[in-house]
Design a binder for these strands. Sequence first.
DNA 1: AATTTTTGCGAAAACGTTTTCGTGTTAACA
DNA 2: TGTTAACACGAAAACGTTTTCGCAAAAATT
Lengths: 346, 346
Amino acid sequence: MKRKVTLKQIAKELDVSISTVSKALRNSLEISEDTREKVQAFAKLYNYRPNNIALSLKNRKTKTIGVIIPEIVHNFFSKVIRGIELVANAQGYNVIVGLSNESFDKEVLNMEMLANGSIDGFILSISKETLLQQDYHHFNETISQGMPIVMFDRVITDINCDKVIVDDFEGSKKAVNHLISKGCKSIGLVTTKDYVSVGRLRTQGYIEAIEDQGVDLNSDLILKVDDKNVSEEHLESLEKQIEQLFESNPKMDGVFAVNELYALMAMKIARKRGLKIPEDIRFIGFTDGVLSRHATPSLTTVSQHAQKMGEKAAKLLIDRLDNDEDEEHFETIIIETELIERNSTE
Amino acid sequence: MKRKVTLKQIAKELDVSISTVSKALRNSLEISEDTREKVQAFAKLYNYRPNNIALSLKNRKTKTIGVIIPEIVHNFFSKVIRGIELVANAQGYNVIVGLSNESFDKEVLNMEMLANGSIDGFILSISKETLLQQDYHHFNETISQGMPIVMFDRVITDINCDKVIVDDFEGSKKAVNHLISKGCKSIGLVTTKDYVSVGRLRTQGYIEAIEDQGVDLNSDLILKVDDKNVSEEHLESLEKQIEQLFESNPKMDGVFAVNELYALMAMKIARKRGLKIPEDIRFIGFTDGVLSRHATPSLTTVSQHAQKMGEKAAKLLIDRLDNDEDEEHFETIIIETELIERNSTE
DNA sequence: AATTTTTGCGAAAACGTTTTCGTGTTAACA
DNA sequence: TGTTAACACGAAAACGTTTTCGCAAAAATT
């Protein structure tokens, strides 16, 4: 087991100084061609590679991006990571991933763990608990220490940083309008509680689309899912709530859901009640993931272009890191949504 | 913007030496209570945190694990990462993620990028291209430089390192036997080409289960999917191949597929051909992901316990890193599979 | 031959820590 | 009072780089 070779060892072996070795390897003109070749040959032979940690310390930058997301087993977030990775790697950056698991404490902990020199900047999406508690001190502290943050998807408007968001409002409006254009008269909404900003915006999009029709809003048609007892494994509570929605609205002929799972669950219940999709009732979900594509019938969705979000976020961060100019000017990029029509709306 | 405070700055401010500050903060007995309190108070005020990079350089360990996977937008791999993260974080380790994208070059590149000091060890699953080319020099080099590797799922037996694998053979046998016990007489197999080791093992499990019945193997029932033209977006080629399988085997009354997608696609085609699931034909897939759970009908699967794999892999690596004893003894952990019965087999 | 210029290299500092060892001061002892 | 022990702290080295500066020898110029 040959340990990694260092400049010092090469220097000793060739009986020159460390500086000479360093310069020779970087093709400095100060070094004679003779020594240069000798050093480079030796280095190649022993497969010398400069130690990244030493470089990081010296340069006071790590060429590493910290990413904090609420959950990784989630098509949307993993697609975002793929986007981040893609552009980060192309620019010689590494990506270090932290999972908050939707918990405030883990979010803070993870950020503290990374903020002490391990990374140059953050890309993150805020955990539900943080959004609920509205405690944002960790973001502000990180920023005030000179470490840039880029937020995506779940963001907070009054924090000074770059942001990449989806046009949730328009996307949702587009979806509901599509249902209307297909002839739906009574459109249900399955959404989240309002503290999740994206859920709130999607709800607003729904409301505006309905009201634009000159119809009165029927709040019975809106279900704000209480996901306290809902987990990947336990969907009974979710199922009950959606069933209730159908029960209260027997004439419902369209459903817009703010995520794939809600939409699929709603379709399942509709089928159970003997409704034909899309003849009797149509469905649209938000977030274009693997579930929508392979559901039966396949689900019409609002695509968020998750990978693109990741790419944009990474670009924003790296631009700021590489040219540390324009310190005080922050950007918010809005990713346009796209309605992908599948069988659930015929 | 207050930059991060260092020992040096604290020392200067309090007019003591750097060593004193360092010792005071670590509660060394050498330091008088007076100075200790003074230093600690000051450090707290300025929110001092030791610089990780400096520590890494000094200790020659980074407390960071490098993970290389072929693809992150994949339920199985993201679950593994979640498992890795879970135990890594609990042990004070960070996780840095690299995606090979199933490409040999990117795998090598990513490993080189990380191997130069950025991490203490690797956890990885090998890319398809690497498996195809059978060029494993980068693994051997990394190992010979003293950096431990733990391979999971897609592994190579004759490389000296810890491994975590699924009992693909038994899992697949279990699945086929289940189909048989349900009365299936003509069971099709949708698998991958043989160079993917897990695919090959699953195929072998199928074969043995069939032959255990004393029935002759009918190779027409085995489809080794050529996924050259198959991508997430383009499934037509896959669809054609599976259709062909049905065409050649009109009496097929059971299908075992080595992943979720193949199974779902097969179910879809069966439905299209007017077959009732599970009455006319039953299905089992490998890999328990979100697709299986929410398919209609929900798909019986062989669960690999992906998260557990990640946890085991991380534990294996961290154990080796923290007690650098037993250098030469490597373990292979086999994760038992579990048959999760859902509606596709009644 | 005396000066200046060029060439080739090394010493040392810096990045931020921790730790070993040395040393001066005070307290305890004979 | 002189010796030893305990105490409190600082200097310096080390981790592996890069870079600035200084300096000797060789080459070029007067």
